[in-house]
Nucleic acid binder design. Structure first.
Lengths: 201, 201, 201, 201
DNA sequence: CATGAATGAGTATTCATTCAT
DNA sequence: TATGAATGAATACTCATTCAT
């Protein structure tokens, strides 16, 4: 199939991405052991064998997805936000708006978030390390914002890490709802913010 | 073996309960398709075959657990609370305290809650009906309290069902954390209440 | 199925032996990659799954067979023969008679011998070590007899190891013939002995 | 690409021969079912698809090899030898020298011989007919020489066909050794001849 | 013609369920 | 009744073959 070696490589990467992308939602919905390779392949629209051309095993495909999922994008955006010259309250507001919009619009964002939960459910293995890393970074920046907020008096007292965990937990929650329930009402940014903000007058 | 037919029956029920109780956490941790009968039996400390003496199939065991899980206790307590002559704020406070305490102390409460999530993840089948029922009832009473709170001015505006869903969602979240993570800090009742309460001075 | 734990263990060992015994000929005939688990199971008269109760994988079963094959019996007999107070010529005669009779009568002897060849054909891996061991011991005693014979003047000159290899090689050859050909004439002990003996008047 | 239709045809034949030649040793080493097309192609240094340009299937390639292997050369040489005005002993001596030299020098001779064994191991099918044919011719001339030798008193008594089979069997044996073992000592023509010759003073 | 990515029939392995003891 | 060895349907994975480039 090689038009040119370059084009060929491009196609390989394209297919690989296609498989990964399509698998994310499938695994997110069905879990690791709930996903049959035959069904997954059919869902993607390729032969079973093709999966094994690109990935050594089901396990490996899952791990690969796992890596992809933890890509830096989200973290990067949060990092940038953290260091903008804004009040913590504004930062939390901006973040909440953005996250909820993403949740609403981009289905694979929900899948990404859900898979992190999935991973917690299904594994206590090597991967969990990555998961922790992901959370850690996301939490790290969140903690900074929360600390800023606590100094500014807009955020409730309490362990900032616990609060960050709470905030992201709620995001997870709605990612799950998005993926697995048909009729639900998404919370708005005010609701999300209340996980952190003091009950001001 | 049986002293008397009565004693015999007692033993049967005892074993049945043991199986169910031990299975709850196992299914909650590993999901339906992630749970192997051989492992589960080993975990319980019985032979594989014994499971089939008491339950027709893995599916049936799961459903049985599902029923047990949705026992009326929680619902009943909430029902009682709902109709006590208290302010909504107080009711929410009492409820939150109780729920979080239960989550902290009673491990199978967490499992029960998690399994409801599990069920959402793994099924869109018959069982979901039951799940909905359970939630529906829990939500129903919660909605009443929220509506009372909105009238009293203590609870934020917005669709009461959405808010009930939010509140219980957070409870789910911490049930999951309890079951699947080793190190986390449980939120306190103030945190939980903020899902609903107006940010009052 | 446990009548008693003891009887139970006996049955396990019995089945294990049955599988191994039946597998020897099957592998010998068809080689490792030519043997399908489904066919093998059918041939043995058990379910496919049963094989996996006793052996981790096809590979492992083969290795287990390999170990069994190299059991000490043959070697022991040869060892005894080696140290009897006989002329080398007599020893070689006795040995040749016995080996050819075994080849004629005991089908799994042929299989055992053939599998050693098989192993050489299919592997250059860990197992080959064992194989070498087997051969080495068999050869070792044979070499002693040959050296005795060379001193006595009944055996041809030449590297004793080479001659031992030649002798056993011919035995291999007829094991293969026994297993894989329907019509052939087995050599007699005189023919076999000529691999070693001087052409005396 | 083709300079001329003629040159083009030449290239085709060249490639075809290359494939066959390289395949002989590969099949001989790994057997039919032990040989993967992907590995074989890599070994030859061509694409997998290319194999299918020249051969219909793996099966066909193997059969083609099989034909090549049984080319008349060896048979022809033996035929000539058979009818030379020499004593049987001399014929056997010449033949043995030649065969052993070929075995030592020409690697594909060993492969050719081994594949005949391989074929016996892996098939009881159509091909075996060819195999028999090959052996039959080789045996036929050998039998003549043996009969001559028995009349001349130099060759042992016994079924000439059995003896021919024995002689060629030993040749097979050392072909296998050549292909599959690294350290072994080749027998000399005296050793080989002893399969047939009377133990003369 | 040469290629190697894609394929799916074929094969190894797993696991819910049965059943003899 | 309790058991765990035996089972085979379901599932993961391999590899000969095809085909677009």
């Amino acid at each position: 199939m090689p038009k040119s070696p370059k084009r060929c490589e491009e196609l390989r990467i394209e297919m690989r991405n296609k498989i990964i992308h399509e698998s994310i939602r499938y695994f997110a919905k069905n879990g690791f052991s709930g996903t049959k390779i035959s069904d997954l392949a059919k869902h993607i629209g390729i032969g079973q064998g093709t999966l094994y051309v690109y990935f050594e095993s089901k396990e490996m495909l899952f791990q690969e997805i796992y890596k992809i999922i933890n890509r830096e994008e989200d973290i990067e955006q949060l990092k940038i936000l953290t260091f903008l010259p804004l009040s913590a309250k504004d930062k939390i507001h901006k973040l909440s708006k953005r996250v909820l919009r993403q949740l609403e619009e981009d289905e694979s964002f929900a899948a990404v978030v859900a898979l992190n939960t999935q991973a917690l459910l299904e594994q206590d293995k090597e991967c969990s390390a990555d998961g922790t890393t992901y959370q850690t970074k996301l939490y790290q920046y969140m903690v900074k914002i929360i600390e800023q907020g606590q100094m500014e008096g807009s955020v409730v007292n309490g362990n900032p890490l616990k609060l960050a965990d709470y905030y992201w937990g709620v995001v997870y929650l709605y990612a799950l709802k998005k993926l697995f329930t048909t009729k639900y009402e998404l919370i708005n940014s005010d609701d999300l913010e209340r996980t952190l903000l003091k009950l001001a007058k």
